[in-house]
Amino acid sequence: MTDGNCHLAEGVKHLDAAMTGPALISCAQALHHLVHAVGYGSLDPSLISDASQRLFAVAPRVAELAAGRITPEEIYVCLGYATAALTTTDAARRPWVLAAVALLEADLRSVYLRDAITAGPQADIAFVIAKSSRVAVFQDSPAIH
């Protein structure tokens, strides 16, 4: 892909797929393309609008499917940051907004891959993955005392 609008259009396609198909990986792929689109700049306002509407629409489905592994707040806020990244003129803030979006992309990929491994035929790998859960991240007390 050679320009931001190509990446943005691809991101919109993945967001559409997230509404009816595998939401976690499709949303992660959409975020990947949105981050790259912003890097190119000069984005088509109608594509920005399409992406923004879809980011808002997909949030409840992604939050439901990632429940217990990624907080709903993180999903909603970071999907909001994805829209903000497409529209912000604050050059100093943009890299940090993109970092938050990229972090959600990584978290969504992680949940998707953990689910795939757990459902797969390799019981030993599934066992190790199940024992190294991200649940500790959501505990109130520190992991190391």
Rank of each mutant, 00 (worst) to 15 (best):
residue 35 V to C: 14
residue 87 T to A: 14
residue 43 L to G: 03
residue 54 R to S: 08
residue 32 H to N: 12
residue 69 R to S: 13
residue 73 E to G: 15
residue 72 P to I: 07
residue 37 A to Q: 08
residue 71 T to Q: 13
residue 39 G to S: 03
residue 85 A to T: 04
residue 29 Q to F: 03
residue 62 V to C: 02
residue 55 L to W: 01
residue 54 R to G: 04
residue 32 H to L: 10
residue 88 T to K: 03
residue 65 L to M: 09
residue 47 L to H: 00
residue 60 P to L: 04
residue 88 T to F: 04
residue 83 T to R: 13
residue 85 A to C: 08
residue 95 P to F: 01
residue 56 F to C: 07
residue 71 T to G: 15
residue 93 R to Y: 02
residue 77 V to L: 13
residue 38 V to R: 11
residue 86 L to V: 08
residue 40 Y to Q: 06
residue 42 S to K: 12
residue 52 S to D: 05
residue 71 T to I: 11
residue 33 H to G: 08
residue 38 V to E: 09
residue 32 H to V: 01
residue 63 A to V: 05
residue 64 E to W: 08
residue 87 T to F: 09
residue 91 A to M: 15
residue 43 L to F: 04
residue 31 L to K: 04
residue 38 V to H: 06
residue 88 T to M: 04
residue 79 L to H: 10
residue 75 I to S: 12
residue 48 I to P: 05
residue 82 A to N: 08
residue 70 I to N: 10
residue 34 L to H: 01
residue 57 A to G: 06
residue 92 A to H: 06
residue 74 E to T: 15
residue 92 A to I: 07
residue 36 H to S: 01
residue 94 R to C: 07
residue 45 P to E: 10
residue 41 G to S: 07
residue 51 A to S: 06
residue 73 E to K: 14
residue 46 S to C: 03
residue 47 L to Q: 01
residue 47 L to V: 00
residue 93 R to S: 10
residue 44 D to M: 07
residue 39 G to R: 03
residue 35 V to E: 14
residue 84 A to Y: 06
residue 40 Y to D: 06
residue 73 E to T: 15
residue 72 P to R: 15
residue 85 A to V: 04
residue 37 A to K: 03
residue 56 F to M: 11
residue 30 A to V: 00
residue 64 E to G: 12
residue 59 A to P: 04
residue 76 Y to R: 15
residue 51 A to H: 01
residue 81 Y to Q: 13
residue 71 T to L: 11
residue 37 A to E: 12
residue 86 L to R: 08
residue 64 E to S: 13
residue 81 Y to M: 12
residue 92 A to W: 05
residue 62 V to I: 09
residue 74 E to C: 13
residue 49 S to M: 11
residue 83 T to D: 09
residue 74 E to Y: 12
residue 62 V to S: 01
residue 83 T to F: 03
residue 60 P to F: 03
residue 30 A to M: 00
residue 53 Q to T: 10
residue 38 V to I: 06
residue 90 D to G: 04
residue 86 L to F: 11
residue 37 A to W: 06
residue 76 Y to Q: 14
residue 65 L to F: 05
residue 45 P to N: 11
residue 60 P to V: 03
residue 29 Q to E: 09
residue 30 A to I: 00
residue 49 S to T: 15
residue 69 R to C: 11
residue 56 F to R: 14
residue 90 D to F: 04
residue 40 Y to I: 02
residue 69 R to T: 11
residue 85 A to M: 06
residue 66 A to E: 04
residue 69 R to K: 14
residue 38 V to Y: 05
residue 56 F to Q: 13
